[in-house]
Amino acid sequence: MLEKATEREQLAEQILDVIVSEGKIDRTKVTPEATLESLEVESMDVVMILMAIEQKFGVYIPIDGGIAEATDVTNFVENVAERILASRG
């Protein structure tokens, strides 16, 4: 269990790195409650973030579905992490 939790945390950290670099976000502003709107992440930024996620983790995530429902960063990261873990079986 502990190993799984750590793997997920590491993954979340890696996803956050991608969001910060592709979304051109100031890392210090990224708090768990920060909304994508407050960080000025627009739909085209999400497209670029998901492109980078695909290159890094090899998983195709459409912009519709769960991602579209995510309003804050934590939610977004969790959604992406779940899909990456699901693709790993």
């Binding site: 999400v46 497209v47 998901l50 492109m51 195709y60 995530i61 459409p62 912009i63 519709d64």
Partner: peptide, 9 residues
């Protein structure tokens, strides 16, 4: 089209 992320898999 998929890089625009609008296609369902």
């Amino acid at each position: 089209w998929e890089t625009l992320r609008v296609l369902t898999p």
